[in-house]
Design a protein around this nucleic acid. Structure first.
Length: 949
RNA sequence: GCCCAGAUGGUGGAAUUGGUAGACACGAGGGACUUAAAAUCCCUUGACCAUUACCGGUCGUACGGGUUCGAGUCCCGUUCCGGGCACCA
């Protein structure tokens, strides 16, 4: 009896040994080059790990193991993003503390992860809900509170510096990131009381309390960040979201907009994700130009990217929320304007986003074009957004499609400014062409400024210069990137280390951190509408004794209320990669030594759905820590691989209407049938297990079947993986049936890691079969190791070196499916060659180890090694074994292959051509023809171009 | 509407980046072993034509053009699918 591949025994054995020997524990080792591999840590949901999770983990595990064998000191940690809404929602429903369910879920995740054989260093595990961890989330928040962003030095600076500046100069000449432009003299600043000064500083702090329009989700009872809202509904739960003005903690992410944009050029991420981030940041260069309101001493500023179209402005538009609306509305128009504002208020964000109705109202006032002196009517319309630019625009209907639609609808004039542009049907928006009508001599015969004859691009530049020189406005860069709303009205999140003294927020001293999440009985908001933390009794700060005390002790002297908000989900996930470097440090987020050794993440693996959330926030967070000198690298994730989504592959059975008879796929068109989802776990290769089906549901017990070829073939469709479609595949079942090594191999063999693909177990047998074949290479019929010390043949060496070359290159390129193919080929070749030389087999075990570590360890041990295969050195290939003495090439005439010919490997192009000319097979093609041209590339191609004589 | 990435057998996918398209695997068909099943092994498998057999031929990488001795790969246009952004001035 041959020795069987008993994967269950093997895998269990090695899991135990790995744990016992701490095989995957890493320490900072200055003698070795570091390599940091990181997976986006999971949120431990109640549903457990599904087959989509391991995809990325396996890919990065292979890379980690490979790098380790290449001699790198590899950090490959894992942890849990363990604060979040689902656990809290579950707590509200069942009364179970979210910590309890979260920990249960974590245990289940760990169990599932362990089965797959990852090389995580679990001694470095972090959990975002652990006080030892969120200590540093709170700490970073306090640092942001204590900082402002200097635009001149493009860096976060201590707020004290700003205070000093205000003391000396007021806001005069201040070039910093701010919520709004303030004009305060040093004297005014110094005359302010504490509360007023605090409010002024909020305008500059990187973490600040802001009265802003927020996305309020009534159903979830909390505010949401922009990336948590899609199409006017919450990403989690899909509940409606409305705009509401609220006082919230915010992070001044927008201050870093330019650095976030520039940094993209220094990192190796996919073009599509960089593009997504660029869109999200939304940089646009333009100018702010001031328009005076006619018959008034007031004026307002608009933002435009098309300064060249100043001569085509025919009206102005204010956003309905713009503060100037009241000012510009004349008494005669007041009633109409009020009516319109009421209409706009009644429209939800979602409605405004979905249908773009052309609506608006004339305010009665006019604005004076600073170039031409023309009076343009000021309109109010919802198509202008309050949150972007200045909330006011100059309308150039000839060259902006929205202005055009508005002008047509309300019968406003349209003046073309570009030569040859046809604007009879639609506006000409392209930034191309030659400018004309600028100025129009009939309107402004006196102006000494002309754009006529310039291209649009030249005209934009010329206008900006003119605006600057004549103090009509300023050149301005706008970003769409908004500041992040940083507070949530929820329980299960990091508490803010903040208390309120006379309504002025104060930071709890750094040495008193962390402020631990208090226990509460109920997880819902309080009866008075306070956030859930309002239910906590022991939740007040005693300033004198420096500790948390009972709320009843609140007085106005030294006990104060603590912030009731908690931090959002992205707080904990924004700097976790730094914490893994030094996870148990209670003196700092990360020690200087650990940070300088591990630097940043070399390879980050995770889903692309985080492109505008986590991947922006953590870049921002890291840049801030970089400014502080905590992180030595400006970008946290050097290379990013986005694993594709795993979709579900659903199966259907077809029930004949009004019967309990099911008809096989091939004949369903002959009947009137209803497709019904069937559990994919009772279908194999689209063939239904009829007995299992009958047992699946009581109503199918008596089911009858119309078969084809004695089988019931199911239909299939690619759909989202979901319980209701019975297409969820759990990795545990695969591990049980085929082993972790097969699962690993198969998930990688499915296709490129970055591609989304349906989960389809149809091919899993092939991978399992390969492992069995591989296993049997090592054992003879009696179950003894058949590896010998024979000298390998040239053929053996060639097979081995070919596969080493291919697999090394493919792993570096994350092309795991092709490396597995190469391993399969090598296995077949060596099996055919009946190769059993140790010199061949040992390297083979080493290169299969990243993919199938359990079987590799077992064989490595059988080969007589008492070290782990993880530390076996990755073999180098030698080109000399791959060189052919002769190469068979197709000989082409006029680009068509006619016959094959053997060429010496070192033949020169000329020699190749003369060989072809003299080859007997060639004569019938050469006859009566003359050679026009010859092309020969050694090892590649030989082609002779002929034409008749 | 704008931007990005794609389209290759019955299926998942290869193709050294311009050099014999379809590696590898699944599925399917045929065969061997077996009382039988499982497992294992061998052969066939892009389409069409030709053929007793051998040797062959034509067409083929979404569609239409182009560059080239030669195009899945490069260029122009079209269609379709996926992703992102979207009254962003």
């Amino acid at each position: 009896m041959a020795k069987e591949y008993n994967f269950q025994e093997i895998e269990q054995k090695w899991h135990q040994l790995w744990t016992a020997n701490e095989t995957y524990k890493v320490t900072e080792d200055k003698n070795k080059q570091k390599f940091y591999v990181l997976n986006m840590f999971p949120y431990p949901s109640g549903a457990g790990l599904h087959v989509g999770h391991p995809l990325g983990y396996i890919a990065s595990d292979i890379y980690s193991r490979y790098k380790r064998q290449k001699g790198f000191n590899v950090l490959n940690p894992m942890g849990y993003d363990s604060y979040g809404l689902p656990a809290e929602q579950y707590a509200i429903q069942t009364g179970q503390h979210p910590e309890k369910t979260t920990f249960q879920n974590i245990d289940r995740y760990r169990e599932q992860l362990d089965k797959i054989g990852f090389c995580f260093d679990w001694s470095r595990e972090v959990r975002t809900c652990d006080p030892g961890y969120y200590h540093w989330t709170q700490w970073a928040f306090q640092k942001m509170f204590a900082s402002f962003y200097c635009l001149k030095c493009q860096k976060a600076q201590p707020i004290e510096e700003l205070i000093n500046y205000l003391n000396e100069h007021g806001t005069e000449g201040l070039n910093v990131a701010q919520s709004e432009e303030l004009h305060i003299t040093a004297e005014e600043w110094k005359a302010m009381n504490e509360k007023e000064q605090s409010d002024v500083l909020m305008n500059y702090r990187i973490a600040f309390l802001g009265e802003t329009m927020v996305n309020w989700c009534p159903k979830l009872g909390t505010v949401l960040a922009n990336d948590e809202v899609v199409d006017g509904v919450s990403v989690r739960g899909g509940y409606p979201v409305e705009q509401k003005k609220m006082r919230q903690w915010c992070l001044r992410v927008s201050a870093y907009a330019q650095r976030l944009l520039d940094g993209l050029d220094t990192i190796e991420w996919s073009d599509s994700i960089k593009e997504t981030q660029r869109n999200w940041i939304g940089r646009s260069e333009g100018a702010e130009i001031e328009f005076k309101i006619a018959d008034s001493d007031k004026s307002f500023t608009i933002f435009t990217t098309r300064a060249d179209t100043m001569f085509g402005v025919t009206f102005m538009v204010l956003a309905p929320e713009n503060e100037l609306v009241q000012t510009v509305t004349t008494p005669e128009n007041k009633a109409e304007v009020e009516k319109y504002l009421t209409y706009v208020k009644g429209r939800t964000e979602r409605e405004r986003q979905i249908d773009h109705k052309i609506t608006g109202v004339f305010s009665g006032s006019y604005a004076i074009n600073p170039f031409t002196g023309e009076k343009n009517p000021i309109w109010i319309s919802e198509y202008v957004l309050a949150g972007y630019g200045t909330g006011a625009i100059m309308a150039v209907p000839a060259h902006d499609s929205r202005d055009y639609a508005f002008a047509k609808h309300f019968g406003l004039p349209i003046i073309p400014l570009i030569e040859g542009a046809d604007i009879s049907e639609e506006s000409y928006d392209a930034k191309e062409g030659i400018v004309t009508n600028s100025p129009r001599k009939d309107v402004t015969p006196y102006i000494d400024f002309s754009l006529n004859g310039l291209t649009v691009k030249e005209a934009i530049a010329a206008t900006k210069v003119y605006v600057k020189e004549h103090h009509l406005g300023r050149v301005k860069v706008n970003y769409r990137l908004r500041d992040a709303i940083f507070s949530r009205q929820r329980y299960w999140g990091e508490p803010f280390p903040v208390y309120y003294k006379n309504d002025i927020p104060q930071m709890i001293p750094e040495d008193c951190l962390p402020i631990e999440l208090p226990q509460v009985e109920k997880f819902l908001p309080t009866e008075t509408g306070e956030p859930p933390l309002g239910n906590a009794q022991i939740w007040a700060w005693d300033e004198v004794n420096r500790k948390i005390v009972d709320k009843n002790l609140i007085d106005n002297k030294n006990v104060f209320p603590i912030e009731l908000y908690t931090m959002p989900g992205f707080a904990g996930s924004s700097a976790y990669y730094l914490r893994y470097m030094d996870p148990r440090n209670d003196k700092a987020l990360v020690s200087k030594e650990a940070d300088e050794y591990w630097q940043n993440v070399d390879l980050y693996v995770g889903g692309s759905e985080h492109a505008t959330g986590h991947l922006i926030y953590s870049r921002f967070w890291n840049k801030f820590l970089y400014d502080l000198g905590v992180s030595c690298k400006e970008e946290p994730f050097q290379k990013l691989i986005n694993q594709g989504m795993i979709q579900g592959r659903s199966n259907f059975v077809y029930r004949v209407k009004d019967t309990n008879t099911f008809v096989s796929l091939g004949m369903k068109n002959e009947y009137d049938v209803t497709p019904i989802h069937v559990d994919v776990n009772i279908v194999k290769n689209d063939v239904l297990d009829i007995d299992a089906f009958k047992a699946w549901r009581p109503e199918y017990e008596t089911a009858e079947f119309i078969l084809e070829d004695g089988k019931y073939i199911c239909g299939w469709a690619i759909e989202k993986m979901s319980k209701s479609m019975f297409n969820v595949v759990n990795p545990d079942m695969i591990v049980e049936k085929f082993g972790a090594d097969t699962l690993r191999l198969y998930e990688m063999f499915l296709g490129p890691v970055e591609q989304s693909k349906p989960w389809d177990t149809n091919g899993i047998d092939g991978c399992h079969r390969f492992l069995k074949k591989f296993w049997s290479l090592f054992w003879d019929k009696e179950g003894n190791l058949q590896v010998t010390n024979e000298e390998p043949t040239a053929e053996n060496l060639k097979s081995l070196h070919k596969v080493i070359k291919k697999v090394s290159a493919d792993i570096e390129a994350f092309s795991y499916n092709t490396s597995i193919s190469a391993l399969m080929v090598a296995c077949n070749e060596l099996s055919q060659q009946k190769c059993r030389c140790r010199q061949i087999m040992e390297p083979l075990v080493i290169i299969i180890a990243p993919f199938a570590p359990h079987i590799a360890e077992e064989l490595w041990e059988a080969l007589g090694h008492n070290t782990t295969v993880c530390d076996a050195q990755w073999p180098d290939y030698d080109e000399k074994y791959l060189v052919e003495s002769s190469v068979k090439l197709g000989v082409q005439f006029n680009g068509k292959v006619r016959f094959a010919l053997d060429f010496p490997a070192d033949a020169t192009p000329d020699q190749m051509i003369s060989m072809v000319k003299t080859a007997p097979e060639a004569q019938k093609y050469l006859e009566g023809m003359q050679i026009v041209k010859t092309i020969a590339i050694p090892g590649r191609i030989v082609n002779i171009v002929l034409k008749p004589c």
